[in-house]
Write a protein that binds this DNA or RNA. Structure first.
Lengths: 356, 356
DNA sequence: TGAAAAGATGTAATCGATTACACAAGTCGA
DNA sequence: TCGACTTGTGTAATCGATTACATCTTTTCA
């Protein structure tokens, strides 16, 4: 297929620099890694040679010899979801501080792509993995676990393995969402779900049901629509909602995107929000504050989540784990905005920002 | 700092597999790379040994020996912008098809982070680079260019170098946006800009001014607000807009996010869109269809852009470039939705989807 | 001043794969 | 049955850095 393989114009090795500087390769290496282990004079000569030759160390060779890459792999289920961009920012900040690099693997919602990234790490291209893929742990993760690869789960419940987890309190937050709706007088609820089998969805749904139970409501007092954490799920759920004879008045969506999809669709059908129906989202993405009415939602501490995940992984890589690092659970904040209001035939609104 | 370095439980090398199978390492390597170059019997014996030992090749060693990584680096200015998630999807599709992997480098809007990623590639951790950073080419890119590293610019105008570019027709599309507004009777315009010095911003602004000129308007017939491609820029621009005595009626924002920020702010101030002011965005992100009113915008062929960029880079890596690959320019589509309408004191609306 | 300690540098082994080359075994036609 | 050819496998060099150890130089201090 290929006519001629592409070749670098100049390919400078450490040996070339050594020759140019009149020293051994060991010295060049030392100048670059431990400048204080060589004489100042030598240092300057070598650095000059480095500059003149335009030398850049071949990190593949270095990684082979040192047996580490100073790189961490982050597996993201879907980059199009703005939630992950925020988390990645937190991860990156923490890693950079410690001299580590970051490689992002995007699953694009296809679990079939997972092995590709798992291999990347197994084949020593990364020193550790941050898994944000909320799947039930399968063969892939098991292999990594057996291979002893440092790894942190950034979604609930994989934690029952020997894998530490850094997560948000999905369950408690979902309960709070229900409590919020019930507090406004809503007695008939709707739940716009995430992907069935997803660990995070499982937590949020569990919290929702817990809230329902605590309100003294039962299985028949709510409707559940399956889907994913995307706009179109909200649209589909709303369409189903609109076909109901006895419609819920309080909706909890497991993601902001689906909440927004729902919102748009019911408004297009002529319903008023929050007068006819109240909606609570989950995530706290920036966009939720730019729609009309602004979305009541549970804000995740995304940046902090990223930082904590990276911090725990680094500890694991360095063999510095402490017992309390094995399970970190961060609280969320309820942003009480304009898509929630009293149930039809009720009164005013409470405060604005409340910790869960 | 670190108490004890973490160590893998079992570290299986190709030599271990060879011993287990009773063959040489060369044979194991061949079984894995060219299964048809070995006897079936041998193949089975080796594969069994691979399975039993749980061997995964060390790709760092392989990369060193073969002098390639089968990996491409993509430098993204800001992952939080949904535009890039879409482009990445296209890139990934194309690369996967050719057996290449993808590493994402996020600049997070800090140009200072660029050298980190440039080094990544210079140090042979990637076989090529896709640059989406719309900066004027600086030292970083020059080094890569000199090192002969295959690289494709996915933003306008770096193309005057020896670097191929795959871009959208920003300038033509912006002209079209102005033409659209002018066609609706708007004679006083506003331009919500991207970052000054950014190549893409330059193109879009040039197109805007070209459109203005073609409409027979002059420098005093429009206002320009500086900013970046984010929500808050739109908010700030709208605040400035609201303070004007003689307000424009047709606004062109260089990104959907800033258009949405603008929209929200002017509506909050009591203006009606499009009755009082029309707004055109640029990008065609999914969100733009979920706000109210839905945003008129120029839709980029994001997936296609990604595929083309990757395709050209692969050609470059393989030394298969043809003259027409050096400059690819993709057309956009004007999505005529609900934020644009006749200038105050004019009539109806034209068609819905128009190629630029 | 001289012996021991500390400091600077060089030599060569090493990381774990791939692959050119050599060689052995098997196949074929005359 | 013999060489020519094909096929399969092993030996060892190689990719480009790092680093243990040896060696040589300088400093320190009794």
């Amino acid at each position: 297929m290929s006519r001629k393989r592409w070749r670098s114009v100049k390919e400078i090795r450490i040996a070339d620099v050594a020759r140019l500087a009149g020293v051994s390769t060991a010295t060049v290496s030392r100048v670059l890694a431990n400048p204080d282990k060589v004489r100042t004079k030598t240092h300057d000569v070598v650095m000059e040679a480095v500059r003149r030759s335009g030398y850049t160390p071949n990190s593949v060779a270095r990684n082979l010899r040192t047996r580490r890459t100073m790189t961490v792999l982050v597996v993201v289920p879907n980059l199009a979801n703005p939630v992950f961009a925020q988390i990645l920012r937190g991860i990156d900040d923490e890693l950079t501080q410690s001299g580590y690099g970051l490689v992002i693997g995007n699953l694009d919602n296809c679990l079939e792509r997972e092995p590709r990234y798992v291999d990347l790490a197994l084949s020593r291209q990364a020193d550790g993995i941050l898994l944000m893929n909320g799947r039930i742990p399968g063969d892939g993760t098991r292999h990594m676990d057996e291979a002893g690869l440092p790894m942190v789960a950034m979604c609930a419940a994989i934690s029952d393995e020997r894998i530490p987890s850094v997560v948000v309190q999905d369950r408690e937050a979902s309960r709070e969402a229900v409590r919020h709706l019930v507090g406004l007088g809503h007695r008939r609820l709707g739940y716009v779900a995430g992907p069935t089998g997803n660990v995070i969805e499982g937590e949020r749904y569990a919290g929702f049901r817990q809230g329902v139970a605590e309100a003294g409501l039962g299985e028949r007092d709510f409707v559940r629509w399956e889907g994913r954490f995307v706009f179109s799920t909200g649209v589909a759920a709303a369409e189903a909602f609109l076909r109901l004879k006895d419609r819920p008045t309080g909706i909890f969506a497991a993601s902001d995107e689906s909440a927004i999809g729902f919102l748009k669709t019911v408004r297009a059908a002529g319903l008023r929000v929050p007068e006819d129906v109240s909606i609570v989202g989950f995530d706290g993405i920036e966009f939720a504050d730019y729609i009309e009415p602004t979305l009541t939602t549970l804000q995740q501490p995304l940046h902090e989540l990223g930082r904590m995940g990276a911090r725990v992984l680094l500890k694991m890589i360095r063999g510095e784990m402490k017992p309390e690092d094995w399970s970190v659970r961060l609280p969320l904040t309820l942003l009480d905005r304009d898509t929630t209001g009293p149930a039809p035939g009720r009164a005013a609104k409470p405060l604005r920002r409340r910790a869960v």
